[in-house]
Design a protein around this nucleic acid. Sequence first.
DNA 1: GCCGTTTTCGGCCCGACTGTTTTCAGTCG
Length: 573
Amino acid sequence: MNNAQIAKIFENIAELLELKGEDQFKVRAYQRAARTIDHSPLSAAQLVEEGRTRELPGIGKELAEKIREMVETNDLDFYQRLKAEFPEGIADIVSVPGVGPKMASRLWKELGITTLEELEQAAEDGRIASLPRMGQKTAENIVKNLHADYRKDTRIPIGAVLPIAEELLAIIEGLPGIKNVTPAGSLRRFRETVGDLDIIGTADDTEAVIKAFTALPQVEEIISAGPQRASVRLQNGFQVDLRLIPHESYGSLLQHFTGSQSHNVVLREYAVKKGMSVSEYGITDVKTEVITHFADEKSVYKHLGLQYIPPEIREGGAEIEAAERGEIPKLVELSDIRGDLHDHTNWSDGNAPIERMIEAARAKGYEYIAITDHSAGRGVANGLSVERLREQIAIIRDLNQKYKDIKVLIGSEVDIRSDGGMDFPDEVLAELDVVIGSIHSAMGQDRDTMTRRIIKAIENPHVDIIGHLTTRLIGSRDPVALDEEAIFQAAAANHTVLEINASPSRLDLKDSHIYRARELGVMLTISTDSHMPEHLDYMRYGIAQARRGWCEDRNILNTRSLPELLEFLKGSR
DNA sequence: GCCGTTTTCGGCCCGACTGTTTTCAGTCG
């Protein structure tokens, strides 16, 4: 079992234990373990093999043993037995917004409800309203939420959310009396998918602003609304949570609402040990009961004796300990980027001529751009034959005479064939400044075959960069099966660069892979894989992704100057 | 179920909003 599968089982166990009415702290232990395993840069199999599972925070004797069982037998007896205690459809019931484990458990035990159909029936015929401590309103909400086309776990790729969020922010900024309007939550942390839009602001009269917000024409439905907080569904289907607080607590609110939730839990547990209590209003000294307010976020961390922690790495992992020791790295920034090393033109499947891509890169102030159209190979995307490639090379050489302020690197995104061979012969690859090897076919190969295939490409001295390693498309195509650890080690040993593909539908490598590759000394690039000039703007997503993997500028090849880049490329061949 | 320079037992983040009931449990983030 891989980490994601183990994490899923721990999550399911937590849910079942909640239904069972088990101790909430036990439930939390499983939830925490699920997150820890999911975010672990090392595979569970490797951890088990090296006997290091218990080094993970929140993994003790029992959980380590369960992880071992899952790695070795692909199953977990405890989970199977627990699952057997409940009807199949109970998870669907809990997934209805507003229905939690307590209610689901009562509906099952007192009314025998085990499916969504039975749930709707019971809500409509009055049986739910007749239960003690439930009522007509509860039943109505269940019916309403059943028919809503969303669930608690629907998440949308960040690339689809960010532009909408930015429009919405401008609208909210226009509400009278509101200040400090800021995106928070997973949006601010740049998670690859976002569940709902968390937006915060400050106001003297928070209630008036909430009223104005819920009255916006874009609001389709008010999910909840109080004096400080409103949760609404927009006409475009997005859920937006707006939270307001007086101006003097802005820093604390931003910290609180940025999360992640597990980061906040770990942070607050750390604070408790130091005799402080952290909330969205400020930090209270437990002894004196004096609360300190923070108008800016950095002061919150400072007050706790911690180095500032950038939002992208607030995932409740090792960041609090690192901040305590002053070991939070200076993460790479957009302004560090000096060029883009993966760009297509209308010679293959891009939509713009070479010169327009160059102009777009110049407008960004880049020192270099690599033109990397597809190879002919499997006919993907109007790929270039050797003849057309040589024709393009000649044109780019001429363009380099014309442009003195930017270097146009001659490159290609070359298919890695199913046997690990490259789609151009070595003597052709040798003519190029930059060779990206990418998987575009035979994605269904088994793990061992795929791993060997990619490692063969990594070992090819002409291949500089491996593009979008796992080929996943967020929300629509699963990653290929591969042994990441072996691939990262091979990349480090051969000085082959791994790409962080910044296209928001890919974000490939993913954050935990970036973290591990960087740890193993793999050099990375952040590349937009642009197919039109506007795509160069995707760099911001790639930067955020690299930051989520704790990357500094030195980990990213395209933060280097042109001479340094050329030297690296020459040296790695 | 985890964890420990105050603890191997007794803690475990903190608060808004809702619905149902008049003080709070459940849900959510």
